[in-house]
Structure formats: C-alpha cells, structure tokens
Amino acid sequence: MQQAASRPLMRKPKRNRTEFWMLLPSIVVLAAISIFPFFFMVYASFMDYSLDMDRPRFAGFGNWADTLTDTAFWQSWGRTLVYAGGGLLAQLVFGCAIALLLYHIPRFRNLFSTLFMLPLFVAPIVTGLLWRFLLDPTYGLYHWVLNTFGLDIQVLGDPSYAMFAVIMMDVWEWTPLITIIVLAGLQTVPEEPLEAADVDGANSWQKIRYILLPMVRRMIVVALLVRSMDILRYVDTIVITTEGGPADATKTIGYYLMQVAFRFQDIGGAASVGLTMLLASILMGRFFIKVLRSEEA
C-alpha cells in the first residue's frame, strides 16, 4: 500500500524511498503554511475585500483592473527597478571589488574580512533607525560631514537624493554577504592557472578578468539570487526612514504593497499587487537558476 502510494512520484522507488520519506515532512509543513496563503491571495485578488467589510464580494477582474491601471502602481515598479537594479549592481560591484581587495592583501585578511562582515548582522529595522540618525539634519553625523564638505543637502528630504540614500542603506547592509561569498570562492581557486598566467606575463587585471572572476561566477549568481528575492520584499529601511517620500521618490513596489495592505486594509488590492510581485520574483528566480544550471552544465 505504501509503495503503491509513493511509486508514481519516483523514478527508482527502491533506491530513493528513504530520501522521499526524509523530504516529505518538509514538503508537508511547507505546503501547509504556504499553499493556503497562495490560493487565498489568488482568491482575494478576485474579491472586493477589505478588512472592514462583513464579507468579501466577488469583483471579477476589478482589483486587477484597478491595480494595473493605477499609474502609481507602475511608477512604483519603475522605482523598484532602480532600487533593486541599482542596489544589486552596486552590491555586486563593491562586493566583488572588496573581495578581490581582501584576496590581494598579504596580511590581516581574516581580521579585515571579519570586520567588514559586521553590517550584515544589523537588523534591517535598526539599519533604518541608524541611518535616519546618521542623516538627520539636526544632529546626524553624516549630515554634518556632508555639510563640512560644503554639501548642504537634505538627503532624506530631497527627492533627488532620497532614493540614492535608501539604496546605499541596502548596499551598506548587504555588500558584505556578497563579499564573503565571493572571497570564499576566491580562496578555493587553485594556484596553477594563476602561475601559468604569470609565466605568460599576464597583468593583475587580466588574471582577475580571465581567471578569478570566471571561477567565482557561480557563487555570484547564488548570492544575487538570495539578494534579489529579499530586495523586493524587504522594506523595513524605507518604512523607518522616508516612508516612500519625499514626493514618492522612494515608494517602491514593496512599500506600495505595505500601504495598500496595512494602511488602506484593502485585501483584494493587496493580493493583486502581491501576486505581481510574486510573479516578478519567480521570473527573476527562474532566470538566476537557469544561469546557475547552465554554469553547472
């Protein structure tokens, strides 16, 4: 009976029965806590449903039409593109650069990489509070530094700088993750190709470009996959610092969703916005995993 039940799932039942039973509890727990929310989102996205209503009413494509025709929704996606794209790119560049830096310095490598890791452990809500503190026009350390250099700007109060500032907060917190992953990869690169390159008279940049970077490409993709999932979802720093402003400059799709779900308590609308985010995440995940698999092959 048991075998009959599980056989259709497996190609080689004999060999893999234990693995199947080992995986099953996770699948069940995951299903229990994620499938219902998913179907609920799909259901709610077709209902006129807000928290203060007695019962949801069928709305057809009403929420979808409202969401997809809302210019603020698309503008938020546009800003998200800047936020996520800019953030990931900066993290990637800085992360790799600093990993290479650490890789090349002869002494104190462990000490420096340990110290550099610290921002990673700061809770996002604390990151927000901390940067708000640093950038405050009255007593912010960074505001004062900027001022001393003659830059009298209101970083969080000016739409031209606010987005840059919230990206920098994300970069500050998460660059170390990329750095340690890439550095770990660099340390496993074997000596031979590098020595061979030396013999061929390659310069440092050529060694980085043609030997080191290709060898850690896979790790970079993994790091980007994890980060790309979270950069869309997490809005803690924006909630604490700019709350989407000024002039909507930092209202990313994540913050837009927070507003619809929590402030307006519009469950139907939130579900449709949430599903577009899920879709985008999945597409992005697919993309990175595809890249990953092609690397493996």
Binding site: P8, L9, M10, R11, K12, R15, N16, E19, F20, L23, S26, I27, L30, S34, F36, P37, F38, F40, M41, A44, L51, M229, L232, R233, G254, L257, M258, V260, A261, F262, I267, A270, A271, V273, G274, L275, M277, L278, S281, I282, G285, R286, I289
Partner: peptide, 28 residues
C-alpha cells in the same frame, strides 16, 4: 539525492515559497 520525477519543479517550488511578499500573506 532523491531523483524524483518532478525534482526540478519541487526544488523550484520550495524556493519560490520564500518569495511571497509578506504584507500580502499576513492576512491568510
């Protein structure tokens, strides 16, 4: 190790559950 028929799909489904936007799943 499982080598299941839908291994890749299961594996992707697993990671995709982490992508759910939090404000939208809080009510369910």
């Amino acid at each position: 190790r499982g080598n299941f028929r839908w291994e890749k799909d299961v594996s992707f489904w697993v990671i995709s559950t982490r992508m759910a936007p939090i404000p939208a799943v809080i009510l369910p």
